[in-house]
Design a protein around this nucleic acid. Structure first.
Lengths: 367, 367
DNA sequence: CTGTTAGCGCATTCAT
DNA sequence: ATGAATGCGCTAACAG
């Protein structure tokens, strides 16, 4: 029933090897022969058997892209961009030539699922793996990841980090593209300080993620530089306060709802805050809603800022001050690195700049 | 170097066949033997060779999910939901048991890439394919898709449509979950009419997509029922007017920018419109920005409505009136259908209801 | 440039 | 319940 390479060979009156060479295109074949083979392929409607091919060649054309949450445009943009560099442009025939199959895997932010997906990709003998977004910092998970990635790399799978810091023991990885979350966070808070803000609330992401930590560190750097040291622990750690007990920092997931609730908590703890910095734009949207529901205006009563500059941020009312991350460009570059189409940066790691975008949601505090 | 099934068998002092049986778990094996085998697997850090396994078994554990634009949460939400039903919960060991590998493929809305991905999945002998979002209606593409899907189904690949109408010649497909775009569009426009609006602009999606057509048809049904027939062609088709020459309809991509520009065009053509319906929420956001940039207020001067009820829509200012589509639920159901965990709906096709969400962005026109 | 030969690693008969 | 044998469909030497 299912037509095989041998069938094509028979019809084209050549050997199976020749058909294989034509299909893979990495070997000289006479033009006339190629013609004949391709016609036979079309006639028979032949489709290469991927598993068989991968088995024989000991490599597959799968490239995995791991994301924390594909429903979040932050990851969607990077993943889509990476895929443009991997999937191949398509030749319009739907026939599929030498393209790789870029596959996006949604870990839901779970370390276990992350490892499971890596195992699945290892099982498929993936050609490359792109890991996007911040990592979980638990030592156990980091060790497990390092071990797994080493095994993958060992088996010839290329590894690329995108928007994620390299592992502490980072070694044989092809490349890491790290966002300058710390610098971005610092500049954002510096901007607020320069406007005159002195009591700035911070709605942080989950405490265990690198992204959260780096952005928060940048924020604190700016505070410290301005002599606005952290305040001692206030009302305890209730409501998700960080382990450091900072009254002006509340942790939560990277979603809208967390932004809403954490902001209410913040306003309860410190009614005198004049600005709120959110872990990202989505959280900032929730923060804005909370501020408004408390009957306050943005930015007259309270300034609000985000991070990432997702597409919707410019359309927020007022437009959101945020830190722009070149997600598409970074994703595309990660895709090229995964394909070996681009050389890794010197030292294997490149830092991607983050640009402060000042818009209407931040202004000087009143009087 | 790479450890194989035979190595595990040797270490466990059993035959390769037994190891295979333990790993696949679909055959009786003595508990003690199983123990020994599993320990050997762990000791040797063995990972099944996917291609070899797929070749021998003539099936793979890949499930493809096709989306038009993964950077758009509309697709991200559905794809992520589907993946939760497919990827398996993970057992926390990262060992990967019988899970399938759900892979998201980003077509960018291009028919060619859609076909290419299907070929790639066919090549991988995918266990199932989920197609999300509206289809392109070109007869040539529809025929090509029907042929390709028939071949996939023939090879044992399960096919599920999610948020996409079944093919005209839809036959052996497992199931289709279609959104009630027409009904949603109708109710949305009825709502505006009931508020007193008589001149309603419409920023439509790309004309060739089913989603665009169905939503627009619903809109027109409502107009017709209210005696607000389409106006004859006005200023020509410049600026992307539909083929029908309707002055109050402008087509464009499903993105923010299109919403912005189409709205400006609409306001130019018909400065007396009192409401604008957008193809989806993202487009609506752009429309809102355009309205404001023209110095008008929402909803006092102009009402604006969207479609989909994406998470950010409730946080728009004013909150966006829209039509809620249960994207997560639909995606999850599609995932279950793809896994054979749920029976297909009677007739193979289920229509998913769309719920009108009335919020602050729509109000009665002035005076 | 093309044909021949030999596995790739596993699932699955068929025995036992 | 387990072992031995066969072949899935293809690629990669190696000839020629």
């Amino acid at each position: 029933m299912t037509v095989t390479l041998a069938d094509v060979a028979a019809r084209a009156r050549v050997s199976p090897a020749t058909v294989s060479r034509v299909l893979n295109g990495n070997y000289p074949v006479a033009a006339s022969t190629r013609e004949r083979v391709l016609r036979a392929v079309d006639d028979l409607d032949y489709v290469l058997n991927g598993p068989a091919s991968s088995l024989a060649a000991a490599t597959s054309d799968l490239v995995g892209i791991l994301v924390n949450d594909i429903a979040d445009p932050f990851f969607g943009i990077m993943a889509g961009a990476a895929q443009t560099q991997i999937g191949g442009p398509g030749d319009g025939s739907g026939r599929a030539g030498g393209e790789k199959l870029a596959v996006i895997c949604n870990t839901g932010g779970s370390p276990e699922r992350e490892l499971t997906y890596l195992t699945l990709l290892q099982r498929q003998r993936a050609a490359a793996v792109v890991l996007t977004g911040g990592a979980v910092e638990s030592p156990a998970h980091q060790a497990a990841m390092a071990a797994k990635l080493a095994k993958l790399a060992d088996a010839g799978t290329r590894i690329v980090f995108c928007g994620r810091p390299p592992l502490p023991e980072g070694d044989a990885l092809v490349a890491a593209l790290a966002f300058d979350n710390r610098g971005g966070g610092r500049r954002l808070t510096e901007h607020l300080i320069s406007l005159g803000h002195r009591r700035i609330g911070y709605v942080a992401g989950p405490p265990e993620r690198t992204t959260t930590r780096h952005r928060l560190e940048g924020h604190r750097e700016a505070l410290r530089a301005a002599g606005l040291e952290d305040f001692p622990a206030g009302g305890g750690t209730a409501g998700g306060a960080g382990a450091d007990g900072d009254r002006l920092v509340v942790h939560g997931p990277y979603d809208r709802r967390s932004g809403y609730e954490a902001t209410l908590e913040l306003l309860r703890r410190a009614p005198d805050v004049t600005a709120i910095v959110a872990a990202n734009d989505t959280v900032a949207l929730g923060a804005c809603a909370a501020v408004r529901d408390q009957g306050m205006r943005i930015p007259q009563d309270i300034s609000v800022a985000g991070f990432d500059d997702l597409p919707f941020s410019v359309d927020a009312v007022p437009a959101l001050t945020t830190v722009r991350l070149p997600l598409f460009e970074a994703g595309a570059r990660a895709g090229r690195l995964a394909m070996g189409k681009e050389n890794p940066p010197p030292g294997g790691i490149a830092t991607i700049a983050a640009e402060l975008m000042i818009r209407g949601s931040t202004a000087a505090p009143r009087g």
